[in-house]
Amino acid sequence: MKERQRWQPEEDALLRAYVKQYGPREWNLISQRLPSALHRDPKSCLERWKNYLKPGIKKGSLSPEEQSLVISLQAKYGNKWKKIAAEVPGRTAKRLGKWWEVFKEKQLKHHSSPSQAGNYDHILDTFAEKYVQPKLAFPPPDPPANPAAVLPPWMNASPPTSEALPVREMGVLIRELEEGREVWARQRKEAAWRLKRLEQQLEAEKERRGREKAEEVEAKIRRLREEEAAYVSRMEGEYRERLGAVQREEEAKEAKLMEAWRSVHVRLEKLLAQIGSHRGGPPITAFLSQ
């Protein structure tokens, strides 16, 4: 496997320019624009931009305030560094994760050698608890020589043993226990019956609503069909009226044409009769009539 080479200042400058030109999303295109000698893949370009070159990223060691904030957030979220980095301005998840590993190793070394003093003595010994114990402004008071003297009398009294209880009281307790068990069994049985009753009512309600919905849909379908039939009958009536009007117009036109043809025929007959009378022969109308 080829050893990964460190990013050079010239590459960082080119990466900034390409991100400014193409935006922080086109990493395939940006990796193709970079010099091919170092083989910077899209993931490498993204990691370099996100962890080192992105505007607003803080470099250098964490301040004491940032360290305290990271410790408290790690106790709250665990090793979810992206979530922690969202609440630590300017720090990346990778940087915070590395700092935490170093800090944990130092704390483990400190607890293994008590002579060494650390800056975070207020952290509990168990990292699994992930809880930060605040420092006390004043040292705690010395414990009393006799702790029982501090407690109230009712707490100092030892609880009565089963042997000290009378037999009668033991019988009463057993009977009350049996009665409580019977009451609990009855309540459980009643609760199961009520639950079954509710399930049946729910099923019946579902069926009723389903029937109502089906009836509503059928009513809508019938109404739509009636509207469709009324619309079709209305359109048929309109078309019949239009067809009757067109037929009447055609009949009137045909009557006018017939009347015009008759008048022309009469005039033609008169003209031909006049022509035949001038020639002295039989009228042409006779030939026409034949």
Rank of each mutant, 00 (worst) to 15 (best):
W154I: 03
K253M: 12
K58F: 10
E218Y: 06
S112Q: 14
A148M: 14
Q5I: 11
R16W: 04
R234G: 10
L202E: 15
E228G: 10
V132L: 01
E228A: 12
A145T: 15
E251V: 09
Q133E: 04
Q74I: 07
P282L: 11
G90H: 06
E218C: 04
V19K: 05
M258C: 10
N156K: 14
A86G: 06
H265Y: 13
A245Q: 09
P64E: 06
W184M: 14
I123A: 03
P64D: 02
G118D: 03
Q200G: 12
Y77E: 02
R267G: 07
R223G: 09
G280N: 08
E227D: 09
K213N: 12
K82E: 14
H278E: 14
V232W: 09
A128K: 04
K94Y: 14
S36D: 01
E169A: 12
V172P: 03
I71W: 04
K253P: 05
E87K: 12
K270F: 03
K20C: 08
Q32R: 15
L38A: 11
E178V: 13
L46P: 04
R194H: 11
S68A: 15
P147K: 00
T161F: 05
A229N: 07
Y120M: 06
E216W: 04
K76A: 04
P160K: 08
I57L: 15
L271G: 10
G60R: 01
L124N: 05
A260R: 07
R223I: 06
V172I: 13
P139C: 10
N51I: 04
E218W: 07
F287C: 06
R279C: 11
Y22L: 15
L124V: 07
M258V: 10
I123L: 15
R16P: 04
Q247P: 01
R223V: 05
G276I: 08
A252K: 12
L271K: 13
E218G: 05
A286D: 10
K94S: 12
K98G: 07
K82M: 05
K59A: 11
Y231F: 13
R208C: 02
Q74M: 05
R279G: 01
Q200I: 14
D121N: 13
L271F: 10
A128R: 01
E259Y: 11
E241I: 06
E176S: 09
V102M: 09
R181H: 02
L198V: 10
D121Y: 11
Y77K: 02
Y18K: 00
R242V: 09
L257D: 09
Q290G: 10
W100I: 02
E101S: 14
R209T: 00
A149H: 02
S233H: 10
G56V: 01
R225Y: 08
Y22I: 05
R225P: 00
G281F: 09
A191E: 13
V167Q: 10
E178A: 11
E182D: 08
L69E: 05
I30E: 03
M235F: 02
K83Y: 07
K130G: 01
S162Y: 07
L173R: 10
P89G: 07
E101K: 13
E47M: 14
E182V: 06
L53F: 04
W7L: 03
A75V: 03
G78Q: 03
